[in-house]
């Protein structure tokens, strides 16, 4: 399989960046996942082939990292942080609110594949807690109200 031109360009650069090809495995999987939506068997076989490793070796790696997934997430993957600093400043309140608002639980995707939700560990926003990430986008000092604002924006934004 081939990926989009920019991604192929990125992969080509990666393969030159490392003294040993296999080093590109984790980032390649991450960027491929972002483009394809999940780490499908096809993606796995392709990357294994390009890096000269076995499919098993790729799967071992995928299973290890919490950001890698084999099933598609929602178009907007909402991650609510509840580790200690977030917890102290209302992280769980946001988490409860998120579940209620989106009507889905931890690691679930809503019916139309728009949103998925995950309670996650610390993301390096302790001083601006509680934090949340939608896909790679950061949101600091989240309250139930600001959560709603973000979600409504996304809903309005439609299928972009």
């Amino acid at each position: 399989m081939t990926f989009s031109a920019p991604l192929e360009k990125r992969f080509a650069r990666m393969l030159q960046s490392y003294p040993q090809k296999r080093s590109a495995l984790v980032p390649m999987l991450m960027y491929a996942q972002d483009e394809v939506g999940s780490l499908t068997d096809e993606v796995i076989a392709e990357i294994a082939d390009r890096l000269g490793v076995t499919v098993l070796q790729v799967n071992e790696v995928i299973g290890y990292y919490s950001m890698m997934h084999k099933k598609p997430l929602g178009q907007y993957h909402v991650q609510v942080y509840t580790n200690i600093s977030c917890m102290l400043r209302g992280g769980f309140k946001v988490w409860d609110h998120a579940r209620k608002t989106l009507g889905i639980g931890h690691k679930q995707v809503d019916a139309d594949g728009r949103f998925s939700l995950e309670e996650v560990e610390c993301i390096g926003s302790c001083c601006w807690a509680p934090a949340m990430q939608v896909n790679y986008d950061y949101h600091h000092n989240v309250t139930p109200e600001s959560f709603d604002r973000v979600i409504n924006e996304l809903k309005k934004g439609g299928g972009q």
Partner: peptide
């Protein structure tokens, strides 16, 4: 180089393994 979500990869030797494309 992008990691992929693993606190343990902050530990120096685990980081090196990860950087080599492993768990």
């Amino acid at each position: 180089h992008s990691g992929a979500g693993a606190y343990e990869c902050g530990e120096e030797s685990a980081l090196l393994e990860s950087l080599e494309g492993k768990r």
